[in-house]
Amino acid sequence: TKVFYNGTYVEFNNPEKAKKYAEKVAKKVGGTFTEKNGQFHVE
């Protein structure tokens, strides 16, 4: 499961961990995250 952010991504074996990371990054940058095709995108 990949989490895309700012033109790069971090890959996780565990979708649950990926979601938590996406939430954390989104919170940090004051943005939101969306799930597309089983991957997370932070905006």
Rank of each mutant, 00 (worst) to 15 (best):
K2G: 08
K17I: 13
T1W: 15
G38R: 04
Y9I: 11
V3W: 00
K19T: 03
A26N: 02
Y21Q: 02
E23G: 06
K24Y: 15
N14L: 07
E35N: 06
F12Y: 04
E23D: 07
E43D: 09
F4K: 02
G30H: 09
E11F: 11
K28Q: 13
Y9L: 06
E11C: 15
N13E: 14
F33E: 00
E11S: 13
K36H: 09
Y9P: 04
G31P: 00
Y9R: 03
F4Q: 02
N14D: 14
A22C: 04
Y5K: 02
Y9D: 03
T1N: 08
N37Y: 08
F40T: 01
V42E: 00
P15L: 11
V3D: 00
E43T: 13
K27T: 09
N13T: 13
F40N: 02
V25M: 14
K19A: 08
V10Y: 09
T1E: 02
G38C: 08
K20A: 14
T1P: 06
Q39V: 12
A26M: 03
V10C: 14
Y5A: 04
A26I: 04
E16G: 09
N14Y: 05
F33V: 15
Y5G: 01
E11L: 12
G38I: 01
Q39R: 04
F40G: 00
K24Q: 13
V29K: 05
E35P: 04
G31H: 04
G31C: 07
T1G: 04
V3Y: 01
K36N: 07
N14I: 06
H41C: 14
F33R: 03
T32H: 10
K36R: 14
V10F: 09
G7W: 06
N14C: 13
Q39T: 09
K19D: 02
V25Y: 08
G30K: 08
G31I: 04
T8G: 11
A18R: 02
K36E: 07
T32D: 05
Y9H: 06
K27C: 14
F4A: 02
T32W: 14
K2P: 04
K19I: 07
A22M: 03
N37M: 08
A26W: 03
G31M: 06
T8A: 10
N13A: 14
Y9C: 15
A18P: 00
V29A: 06
K19Q: 08
Y5W: 11
E11G: 06
Y5R: 03
F12C: 11
F12G: 00
G31D: 02
A22T: 02
K20I: 12
K17C: 15
V25C: 14
E43I: 15
V29Y: 11
H41I: 13
F33T: 06
V25H: 05
K28W: 13
V42D: 01
A18C: 05
F40D: 01
F12R: 02
A26C: 11
Y21R: 02
T8C: 15
K24I: 12
F12H: 02
E35C: 15
K36C: 14
K2V: 08
V25N: 02
K17Y: 11
A22N: 00
